[in-house]
């Protein structure tokens, strides 16, 4: 796969007009994310991390500054930047297989090729046996796996993930994290992953960005040198814990503890 997916954010700023004045969500913020990098964004709730992600997705327009993806300015949503939400956002009238092939119509003209690719990724997330099921027949964790398979099969340059495992129980979440890393290892797309779970951020990412309380700025930029592939046991190692302590200290300070 070619190395596309380099993101450059320059002096990005976002304010929201509220009933009682203006709320600054994202302070002027600059950031470069290399192609194929897995970047996690953590910070206290309401710090503007989701807003930042939505601006990269093109779902919100920045008030100032600009976003470049491989040198092209981002002006709206586009298929090179797919977003995964906390809710699976599946099409309830389509089967598991149909949910994947429906979006693939944007990429692949041949129906058989679409189905083959969709099946490959459904197998990857362990849902091969459920390709004919409708979303309402699947558990929340299975639905999110379909959404993950759909996004990965689509193969965007950048995958934007907004607390995608936040609504899942602890066991399912761990499984999803390992699954995501396994599939990501093969296609190495650029990932920007928003979470408030510090363990999750460090476990998944090459680099953890810590955001301040509102208005959001980046107050720390930590490389995560833990070797890959990682297993869940890494979360008990000293290097991991040192990183975790550092991030948590920042966050506690930001929420005023």
């Amino acid at each position: 796969m070619s190395k596309a997916g380099r993101l450059i954010l320059t002096s990005l700023r976002k304010r929201f007009r509220l009933a009682d004045g203006v709320m600054e969500a994202v302070a002027p913020l600059s950031l470069t994310i290399e192609a194929g990098q897995f970047v996690a964004l953590v910070g206290p709730s309401g710090c503007g991390k989701s807003t930042l992600l939505r601006m990269v997705a093109g779902l919100e327009q920045p008030d100032e500054g600009r976003i470049l993806l491989d040198g092209r300015p981002v002006t709206g949503p586009g298929p090179e930047r797919v977003m995964l939400f906390q809710s699976p956002a599946l099409y309830p009238w389509l089967t598991t297989l149909g949910n994947v092939t429906f979006v693939l119509t944007k990429r692949i003209a041949d129906r058989a090729a679409r189905e083959a690719l969709a099946r490959r990724y459904l197998r990857e997330v362990g849902l091969a046996a459920f390709e004919a099921a409708y979303p309402a027949q699947l558990s929340g964790g299975m639905q999110q796996r379909v959404a993950l398979a759909r996004a990965l099969a689509f193969g965007p340059e950048v995958l934007l993930m907004d607390e995608p495992f936040g609504a899942l129980d602890a066991q399912t979440r761990s499984l999803m994290q390992e699954l995501l890393l396994r599939v990501w290892r093969e296609n190495r797309t650029t990932v920007l992953f928003v979470t408030h779970d510090v363990d999750e951020a460090i476990f998944l990412a090459d680099r953890v960005l810590v955001m301040s309380a509102r208005p959001g700025r980046i107050i720390d930029d930590l490389p995560v040198p833990l070797p890959r592939p990682r297993s869940l046991d890494v979360q008990m190692e000293a290097d991991f814990l040192a990183l975790k302590r550092r991030v948590l200290t920042w966050i506690r300070r930001e929420i005023g503890l």
Binding site: A57, L59, P77, G78, V82, F85, V103
Partner: peptide, 10 residues
């Protein structure tokens, strides 16, 4: 999210 997700798929 269903609408926004669809928009990001192009």
């Amino acid at each position: 999210p269903l609408l926004e997700s669809s928009a990001t798929f192009g």
